[in-house]
């Protein structure tokens, strides 16, 4: 749809008003638009309230919530690399009780869709976080973080084994009827296997990709630049890896794919959408430009108008292979 001559205004006629439908469906959930902000880069939203219109975002994927409060990894936790950065935050978060008490009310009062990113060291942790948030009234959706490269147990240990992805997805699926997204790790041989496992176990969507394991060494001091030695690579350097992952996943599963990894501009997001994504997340780019996600959204809408593409879901059909 969209690019054939039949949908173009006739030459000489005033262009008819064209308003693309930006909404995206993820299981039972409708997002007002395809652009969200990625977990770990946006806190719980309010940190950025002074800098952009949060309610214009399609979704906020929160900082990970674990059952227990986590102080996080030793410092330094950040290192900049060419067109990217390494982090080893270690899922620092105030824990489930404080999240429900201190963060959930403000998230509920917002118009954007809240997707709580859930992490844990064991299967029961994931279930408990979701159950207790549900008992507290729930949020719009959950994103299972089975792919964090920066924690010793859980996290990526779950995300690199399709059988474990299936287990955790099934268990959480039983705990909620809300939209359930599984965030996939690129630190695997074939990301389609974990994507299929998530789909078969009841996920409504997958998001891809989490960070890629990386390391940087300070040659002067001969020490790793991160206290944890390795960390997760994000930023533009990661984008081609993410686009390829989304392309392959989207041809292996029928559920929606949420693309992320190095998106800073609308063109970056459109790469993902053309490659097969149904929605996107902007992460590291927010650090450089707090309004990056909204500029990405504006650019996607402008591109859809210009190319007379009616729905976001139509974009992936426009890739010329």
């Amino acid at each position: 749809m969209g690019l054939n001559d039949a949908t173009r205004a006739p030459v000489g006629a005033a262009p008819e008003p064209f308003a693309p439908d930006l909404s995206v469906r993820i299981g039972p959930l409708t997002l007002a638009n395809p652009v969200g902000v990625a977990s770990g880069t946006f806190g719980y939203g309010e940190e950025y309230a002074a800098l952009l219109d949060l309610d214009a975002l399609g979704a906020v994927y929160t900082k990970a919530v674990t059952v227990e409060p986590r102080a996080g990894n030793p410092a330094p936790r950040l290192a900049e690399t060419p067109c990217g950065m390494l982090n080893s935050i270690g899922l620092a978060n105030p824990g489930l009780v404080a999240f429900i008490r201190d963060k959930l009310p403000a998230l509920r009062a917002r118009r954007f869709r809240t997707v709580v990113n859930v992490a844990g060291a064991a299967l029961d942790d994931y279930v408990r976080v979701v159950e207790e948030i549900e008992a507290a009234g729930g949020v719009d959706a959950y994103e299972l973080n089975v792919s964090c490269p920066n924690v010793k147990s859980g996290g990526m240990a779950f995300g690199t084994d399709p059988a474990l992805v299936a287990l955790v997805t099934e268990a959480v699926r039983r705990a909620t009827k809300r939209a359930l997204v599984v965030k996939l790790s690129p630190n695997v041989t074939d990301i389609r296997e974990t994507a299929r496992a998530a789909e078969a176990s009841g996920a409504d969507a997958v998001s891809a990709i989490n960070t890629l394991v990386g390391m940087a060494v300070d040659v002067k001091t001969r020490r790793p630049r991160l206290a944890m030695k390795t960390g997760g690579l994000s930023g533009p350097a990661l984008r081609p890896v993410g686009v390829a992952a989304v392309y392959r996943i989207s041809r292996a599963v029928k559920i929606p794919v949420i693309g992320l990894g190095g998106i800073a501009t609308a063109d970056d997001a459109l790469e993902y959408l053309l490659a097969g994504a149904d929605a996107v997340q902007v992460g590291t780019a927010t650090f450089a430009d707090p309004g990056a996600a909204l500029r990405v959204l504006e650019g996607i809408e402008a591109w859809m108008r210009q190319n007379r593409v009616a729905r976001v879901a139509d974009i992936k059909g426009l890739l010329i292979e």
Partner: peptide
């Protein structure tokens, strides 16, 4: 070292 500068990313511990 900082990434966000506004208290969101927990990087500057």
């Amino acid at each position: 070292w900082m990434a966000c500068g506004v208290g969101a990313c927990m990087g500057c511990a």
